Amino acid sequence: MFANSRTVASAQTGPHDKLAALVERHRAAPFRKPLAAYSAAAFDAAVAAWRNAGSAPLIIDAGCGVGESTLRLASQCPDHFVIGIDQSESRIVRGKDWWEGSWPENFVWVRADLVDFWRQLHAASIRPARHYVLYPNPWPKIGQLARRWHAHAVFPTVVALGGVLECRSNWATYIDEFALAVEWLSGVRAHVEAWAPQDGTVPMTPFERKYLASGHGLHRCVATLSPALPLPPPLA
């Protein structure tokens, strides 16, 4: 059934007590993981599509899944260009018969490793106007902290890209941690709130729709970051 999503279960009752130390360690140590073999071509194709469309203000839809959020962002922001990124080619190319009407023209989907794509944006000095991380895997077990995006070694680069950074989750602790990591790295206090689409507003992603139908509380944080934040060292 559709409305059968379980709520997030975790032994954590608040932000992880090792989060601050982990974020500080990542801030201090350059992230040197080699790029995946397909990353350069994927990045080049996405940037070429953006530039061919006139290099409008850029929106990054990180972890776009089947691409519904990319289409909705492109429709809602016709004066921007949206790049939807997901590591799964099958999700990106899956049929889109759920979309009504014609597709907007101001977007592209690309299969890429997000960790690589974020670092390539930084290396190319490309700064998004808006940046969405919608319903990432929460990795809720206490021992899974390092798997959460805000505790990952790439997160200082994500924050350094600037723009308006928004994360949504059905786990309040994830959003609280995300906001703390953003503030520690940037000095900017994110706006955190319980959130749901307004009346008449269509959910942005299939997960958002399913969580709402299952009665989950939704949460988000939004941080307006300076476009001139100090950047971590460039790719090796």
Rank of each mutant, 00 (worst) to 15 (best):
L225E: 00
K141F: 10
V66P: 02
A146N: 13
I142K: 13
G187Q: 07
Y174S: 12
A28Y: 08
T13I: 07
A151E: 10
A21H: 06
A153K: 04
S102G: 10
A42T: 05
P233D: 01
A124N: 05
N170H: 09
H152G: 13
S5Y: 00
P197E: 06
L134P: 03
H216P: 11
P30M: 06
A194H: 13
R6F: 11
C64Y: 04
A49Y: 00
L185P: 10
R72T: 12
D176V: 14
T201V: 15
R209L: 13
R220L: 09
L22Q: 14
W149G: 03
R147I: 05
V133R: 07
E208K: 05
S5E: 02
C77M: 11
V188I: 06
P138W: 11
D79K: 11
H191C: 02
S186W: 09
V93D: 02
D97K: 15
F117C: 00
V222C: 03
D176H: 11
T157Y: 04
T224G: 10
Q87I: 05
V110H: 04
P30Y: 01
H80Y: 15
D79S: 14
P104K: 14
H216N: 07
P138M: 13
C64K: 04
F207V: 03
K33F: 00
A151Y: 06
S69P: 05
G215P: 08
P206M: 08
A74K: 12
P57N: 06
F2T: 03
S226N: 01
A179Q: 14
R111F: 02
N137Y: 07
R32D: 08
D86E: 09
V115S: 05
P230S: 03
E183G: 07
D79R: 07
N52C: 09
V108Q: 02
A194R: 14
P156L: 08
R111A: 12
W99K: 07
T201H: 13
D17K: 02
L212I: 14
L185D: 02
P227Q: 03
R27G: 02
F43V: 08
A236E: 10
R72L: 13
F43Q: 08
G67F: 03
T70L: 03
T70P: 05
V47Q: 03
P233K: 00
G200C: 09
L145T: 14
A42P: 04
R25M: 13
H216K: 06
I142Y: 00
F117L: 00
P230G: 03
A196W: 00
S186P: 07
P136M: 09
P15I: 11
R91S: 11
A74I: 11
F207E: 09
P15E: 11
L114K: 06
L22W: 09
C167R: 01
A146Q: 15
G54E: 02
V158K: 01
W98F: 14
D199H: 12
E208C: 04
L212P: 01
A223E: 06
A124C: 02
S226A: 02
A29P: 01
H219D: 12
L212W: 10
A196C: 12
A213V: 03
G101M: 09
F107C: 10
V23H: 13
A146K: 15
K33D: 11
M204D: 08
G65N: 05
R189G: 03
P203L: 10
W184N: 00
G143W: 04
V192L: 12
R72Q: 15
A151W: 08
F155V: 05
A11N: 13
